[in-house]
Design a protein around this nucleic acid. Structure first.
Lengths: 211, 211
DNA sequence: TGTACATCAGTGAACGCGCGTTCACTGATGTAC
DNA sequence: TGTACATCAGTGAACGCGCGTTCACTGATGTAC
């Protein structure tokens, strides 16, 4: 108290990214502005421009940060499971949902390329990294050495499934339509049904492990 | 040319809702404002307040309009199919994707309850109507007379699947990650795999029609 | 050890903008008699 | 058929606000010698 703030912040970029997360959590994407982020970080409103250039630069950096954490979350979930490749994939699906619910701010920005303007490429690159984790696991499930067309299709299917569920949970229409649904989503039986459904693909061998 | 505009618009509410759709299509949700919509409709910026009260009122009306069209699109798709209940459900899934792509403006607002403020209930009611169409079809697929817990779970699963795919297509990350994926999504093989996967549910009888 | 200088980080005033909302108003329409 | 009046639809000026961006600046840090 009474201590004068140092002229230099120390780690303003990180503080600004944290501020963006808080702003989204409290007021949604609309609540994000350079000035509000600067306010949170306790610096003047013009300071963010020094590190991120403009607003789209800040959001792009935020999205990249999210994708890095996201890819790690998927990898961690996979590595924590002892079992078949399909078990690993299932764990990744659950991790996907957990990530969306726990890191809603990242989730809201990561899949909205129109927010990042000129910085599209940076975000796409980090997004491709995360998708690669999923694709590799599906490839393993198929018993293939390298991703092929089937692997891509199935990875897409798996992605769409959990992504859809995540969006319904995060955006809230499940609760809007019926409280039951929200409960069902929370217990995740539907997800189990869906991921299990992937076994109908003729090449699916995830559950018959070589001995 | 040269004709003086009539003082009364004729059907301003409809014109404003159309304007919202155009604005979203051209500039996303951020581009929507009462003033911009009024500009499009060729009236003064204060005119919209007369019909919709405030901004959230306009967006709520827009969402309701979308849900009505959405429910009809699902019903039409179902009715146009001769075949098993599962065929009908599949058709509804495709109609869902078509709707998301053709009516992107509606789709962007319909599942974002936070946009409509106090008008949440109106939107939830129209949304429940649309979900009812899906739930009825799933119930039929299960050979049940009335929706039960399994029907709700499966309807949720079907919803999550197509909703996820729709979001990935509409928001564009598929194209961002890989052009292949966008192509696969466009051809919809993944969707077929997924919906087919629902047959693994023990009670699924959609494909064995009573004779 | 000290000095000069370049570089970096953050400041604060200023700009112009579009926004939502309010308000007293005016023009047009419809209804009662 | 005409008149008075209520109601509805749209106007235009005004308000205050937060925003992104720019700019010349100042404080702090690091580096060369």
């Amino acid at each position: 108290v009474g201590e004068s703030r140092p002229y230099h912040h120390g780690d303003l970029p990180t503080a600004l990214l944290d501020a963006v997360a808080e702003l989204i959590r409290e007021g949604g994407l609309e609540a994000v502005s350079l000035r509000a982020a600067a306010r949170r970080a306790g610096v003047s409103h013009a300071a963010p421009a020094h590190h991120f250039g403009d607003k789209s630069g800040l959001l792009a950096a935020f999205a990249v940060q999210g994708f890095v954490a996201f890819a790690r979350a998927l990898e961690d979930a996979r590595d924590a499971v002892e079992g078949s490749p399909a078990d690993g994939l299932r764990a990744m699906g659950l991790a996907y949902l957990d990530f969306a619910r726990e890191h809603r701010p990242w989730f809201e920005v990561m899949f909205r390329p129109e927010l990042v303007g000129d910085h599209h490429d940076e975000m796409a690159a980090s997004g491709a990294g995360a998708f690669g984790v999923l694709l590799d696991q599906v490839t393993t499930c198929l018993g293939a050495d390298a991703p092929d067309e089937d692997a891509v299709d199935l990875a897409l299917a798996a992605w769409a499934t959990v992504h859809g569920l995540a969006h319904l949970l995060v955006d809230g229409p499940l609760a809007a339509v019926s409280p039951q649904l929200s409960t069902a989503g929370g217990d995740l039986p539907a997800l189990a049904v869906l991921v299990a459904g992937m076994r109908t693909h003729p090449r699916w061998v995830g559950d018959t492990r070589p001995t």
